[in-house]
Design a protein around this nucleic acid. Structure first.
Lengths: 197, 197
DNA sequence: TGTACATCAGTGAACGCGCGTTCACTGATGTAC
DNA sequence: TGTACATCAGTGAACGCGCGTTCACTGATGTAC
């Protein structure tokens, strides 16, 4: 509860970090000003020294969550060897570790649905990061295979869908099977492109 | 505002139909008792003659939305010729018509994210319908191709992911391109299985 | 370097509002005689 | 078939609560002299 400018920056960072985790775990609309400030160790009144409104916060928290989650699979699966190529990325993206830690994982998979219903600003932020993921996967594919953008798009759709679906299936065995099926499908697809190369 | 038993059944049906559309369009948590009853042409007090609580309604509305949306692509794309085989199903599922009408479309694509964060009962309802979709696509694939369950799982992940992603991308051209890429990918995949057959 | 003071990060009471839920009531329905 | 009455679908006022937001205040910070 310091009063210096550095303290303010640190508070702001703490608020956004909490918000970023909160929305990935419980959805965009789960963000409440009071609960968030409490989690950041502050009182609700101070909120408006940092953000213009809840809606302003929401847009910034979404952007932050998307950035935090970029290669969030990497963070979530720190103990795995550094992923190489598409196969490595797919393996960590569709890992149990990533599935079980949405609050530190990819915000696209966690929040596509929410963002699709959100106000245009939030939708645009989400759309930009989806394009980023498509471009990333596309570059990754192009390194080793004769793949075009359509392949990257399909791969991203499959990854995002698989992660979201695996998170709604309570039975761990079955949920694992979903991840495995999508993973194998994507890796086989990448290898097929390599052969065609 | 009749008082007969038939009227009550009709009221209940109206309430659930409104709720089913509401959650698909604006998310599970967007359901409010007051607004819902107003839409159904009733006052809020009567709600508890039909449902035990908002949470009870939520579970029933989700089930109802999932059933309504089953082959919802069919409803959404009534003017298309009756879809035959996987290709036909994929084409109507990943159509612009379906993308633009979430309130009458597949509740899996609209609500996977929400359901993954919901209470166990709602999650279980969603999981059961996901299994239904996998089984349906699997049967569809098996008719014409040498496909196993893993192929059906991957296809469902791709369809659900593509629809959700296409709905967050505001630019119509680009959103169409997402649908097209996923659609072509899935149809090519089905045809590859046929050849392998 | 030391003092005086303006700035401003954070506090906590207060606001209006909409939420889910309860309940005493009204009046049409449908059954018992 | 006609009347008397219990049932019950729907009404609308009221409840406690948590929400987003405002604001007068406090006291540490950091600057001007």
């Amino acid at each position: 509860m310091g009063h210096s400018q550095a303290d303010k920056a640190a508070s702001r960072a703490r608020i956004l970090a909490e918000a970023s985790a909160q929305i990935r775990k419980h959805g965009l609309e789960s963000l409440s000003v009071g609960a968030l400030m409490r989690k950041a160790g502050l009182t609700h009144g101070g909120f408006y020294g940092h953000f213009a409104s809840r809606s302003d916060l929401l847009a910034q928290a979404l952007e932050r969550a998307l950035v935090d989650g970029e290669g969030g699979a990497r963070t979530a699966a720190q103990r795995e060897v550094r992923p190489v190529g598409v196969a490595g990325f797919v393996r960590s993206y569709l890992s149990r570790t990533h599935r079980d830690a949405p609050e530190t994982g990819c915000a696209i998979a966690a929040l596509v649905g929410d963002a699709g219903r959100a106000e245009p600003a939030a939708r645009a932020v989400m759309a930009a990061h989806i394009e980023g993921m498509i471009a990333g996967v596309g570059r990754n594919l192009a390194e080793t295979a004769a793949a075009n953008e359509a392949d990257a798009i399909a791969a991203v759709c499959t990854m995002v869908g698989a992660l979201a679906i695996s998170r709604t299936i309570a039975d761990p065995k079955r949920s694992d099977a979903i991840l495995r099926a999508a993973r194998d499908h994507l890796i086989a697809m990448a290898e097929a492109s390599v052969r065609a190369h």
